[in-house]
């Protein structure tokens, strides 16, 4: 295109390369400094014993060896798995509510917004709200279950229940998120296919499974992505609701890393980084999967 003008300058000739470069520069620079290079640095720091102040001592893989025999680390890892598995319940729960709300009655828009808005509240407030909800004496939960004749529970004080109690609190906003994804998805479902399904005699669950769900695939994919990320990022709720307790039973890797790295008893930046690296590697499995899916989509889109 640029050949139409006589004797174009260097800038003019290369504008299709220079322009995107200039546009990318600030964003990429910021991202490299604050995101990419810290990841590499964390890998490096995990090989050192460092209190964040003085000289760092190289210890090789010793931090990782210590992790292998660290009981708190083991508990954290298990709890992370619980989070991953149970957090996925947000997807069917979100779908269920979306199906329930996908109607055209008066005021349904307001209902949808009100169902959604737990997601907008910060996790800190969600954590506080739920820890009060669970309070053994003052909490509404026990007020409700004791009227039905059950024994009161102290969910956050019981090491076997506490993690589930926190996950339940996390599921609340996460389900709302999945719900909104599915509501949007349901809006775009092709009515002709539904009609075709009806003619074939499909109803209810069969219709959902064979006709609707395949069309909701993009929504499910995104719901899956955000839910996995959310599960592995769980930190706020634990910090607010139990602070890792009772006796360390609700720690997850993200929380344990923070505890170790910025502990009152001496910053252990190296050990903390080693925990972070483990968490990162777990996440990397999913990140790789997401990127792969997106890459396939990109290639399909180009064709």
């Amino acid at each position: 295109m640029s050949t139409t003008t006589p004797e174009p300058g260097w800038l003019q000739r290369n504008r299709m390369t220079i322009t995107p470069l200039l546009f990318l520069l600030p964003g990429v620079l910021f991202f490299l400094v604050y995101v990419i290079s810290p990841i590499i640095q964390s890998f490096n720091i995990s090989l050192y014993e460092w209190d964040g102040l003085g000289e760092a001592t190289f210890v090789g893989l010793r931090n990782y060896e210590e992790l292998a025999s660290d009981r708190a680390f083991e508990i954290s890892l298990w709890n992370n798995l619980k989070w991953l598995a149970l957090y996925l319940l947000a997807i069917p729960a979100g779908l269920f509510i979306a199906l329930f709300l996908n109607q055209n009655v008066v005021g349904i828009r307001l209902y949808k917004s009100l169902f959604f808005f737990p997601f907008v509240i910060s996790q800190v407030v969600v954590g506080l709200v739920f820890s009060w909800f669970y309070l053994p004496r003052e909490g509404l939960l026990n007020a409700v279950i004791t009227t039905f004749g059950f024994d009161p529970l102290n969910i956050l004080g019981d090491p076997t229940l506490a993690t589930y109690g926190i996950i339940a609190a996390g599921l609340w906003p996460q389900t709302a998120y999945c719900m909104i994804l599915y509501l949007t998805g349901l809006n775009a479902v092709d009515p002709e296919q539904i009609e075709a399904g009806r003619l074939d005699g499909a109803k209810g669950v069969r219709m959902l499974w064979h006709v609707i769900l395949p069309q909701l695939k993009p929504a499910t994919f995104i719901a899956f992505v955000v839910t996995i990320i959310g599960a592995l990022r769980s930190f706020d709720l634990i910090s607010i609701m139990t602070n890792g307790g009772p006796f360390g039973s609700t720690r997850v890797l993200s929380f344990y890393m923070f505890e170790k790295a910025l502990s009152e008893y001496g910053f252990r930046m190296g050990y903390g980084s080693a925990i972070a690296v483990v968490l990162f590697l777990i996440m990397l499995v999913f990140i790789a999967y997401f990127l792969w899916s997106m890459y396939r989509e990109e290639r399909a889109a180009r064709r």
């Binding site: 604050y34 810290p38 990841i39 964390s42 980084s273 968490l279 990162f280």
Partner: peptide
């Protein structure tokens, strides 16, 4: 590649950034 770098970075756990970012 750059696009995917942004996407991947967006998904990483905060903890892997914490120590260097705090230091910075």
């Amino acid at each position: 590649l750059i696009f995917f770098m942004f996407i991947a970075g967006n998904f990483v756990p905060f903890q892997i950034l914490m120590v260097p970012v705090r230091d910075l």
